[in-house]
Simulated scan of single mutants.
Amino acid sequence: MDISSYIDFTLLKPTTTEREIIDLCNAAHKNNYYSVCVSSSFVPLAKQLLLDSDAKVCTAIGFPLGSMSTQSKIYEAEKAIEDGADEIEMVLNLGYMKSRNYVSVLKDISDVKRAIGKTPLKVIVEISELNKNEIIKACEICLDAKADIIKTSTGFSKSGATLTAVKIIKKTLRDRAKIEASGGIDDLDIALKYIDAGADRIDTSSIIKSGYSSRQIRNTKVYKDYIETVLNSNNNQSISTNKQV
């Protein structure tokens, strides 16, 4: 099963070196991953390395706390786009969220989205810090703010993605925005479980290759995409044969 188009290959640790960014981009290119996610300082390097690749460059702003001022997030986002970023991800202001200052949460996200225009915006809601009702409320705010993707985790908090949280987010969004599962996803079987649960993208720092899965796959998006590809291929072959006859 080919899940390469679901993978955001990520390296955001503070000690990341240029050599590691080069290796990250080479691996993303080789494995046909959807994107790489790097710190904003590495966006120009990543963009240069991926010029001959379809892989996009994503960067995280206001990372990993999300408590920076909105203006600082806007400046970082605009500079990253100028440097070549194709996607922006920002961290939800958890202090505002926990204070139930929902207007400020909305304004923070909305202002960043307005500043970056058509560039896709991910919002990391950090599910390990929120209860079920807070996750639902955070997702509703993200929808109101026109966010494109809701991401589960930064990888810098208590824990990463959970299947339960992804299902809650999926039920709340109802396909009005995409879902990215992040944290603790390091092999094909785990990745497919999250896709089953509703994830549209998988964030990982591990190389995940498409191939044999130890579990039976029936209702995943990957399986549906695979069947559609096979049917289209068979139809094209049939048309070609009829024309020859």
Rank of each mutant, 00 (worst) to 15 (best):
Y6S: 08
D8G: 05
F9N: 01
F9H: 10
T10N: 07
T15F: 12
I21Q: 06
I22C: 07
N26P: 04
N26M: 14
S39F: 07
F42C: 03
V43I: 12
L49R: 08
D52K: 15
S53Y: 05
D54S: 09
A55V: 10
A55E: 14
F63N: 11
S72H: 07
S72D: 10
M90N: 09
V91W: 06
R100I: 10
Y102R: 13
K107Q: 14
D111I: 05
V112W: 06
A115N: 05
T119P: 09
P120G: 08
L121E: 01
I124Q: 14
I124L: 12
S128A: 15
L130R: 08
I135V: 14
K137H: 05
E140P: 07
L143F: 06
D144G: 00
D148E: 02
I150D: 00
G160I: 00
T162Q: 13
A165M: 07
V166G: 03
I179M: 04
A181R: 13
S182A: 08
G184F: 11
I190V: 12
I190H: 00
A191I: 02
A191T: 13
Y194P: 05
G198Q: 03
A199I: 14
A199K: 01
D200Q: 05
R201A: 02
D203F: 02
D203N: 13
T204P: 03
I208D: 12
K209R: 15
S213A: 12
S213I: 12
Q216R: 10
I217E: 03
R218H: 15
K221C: 01
Y223S: 13
K224H: 15
D225W: 02
D225M: 05
D225F: 03
Y226S: 14
E228Y: 01
E228F: 01
T229F: 03
T229R: 08
V230W: 12
N232D: 15
N235H: 09
S238G: 06
I239C: 04
V245G: 02
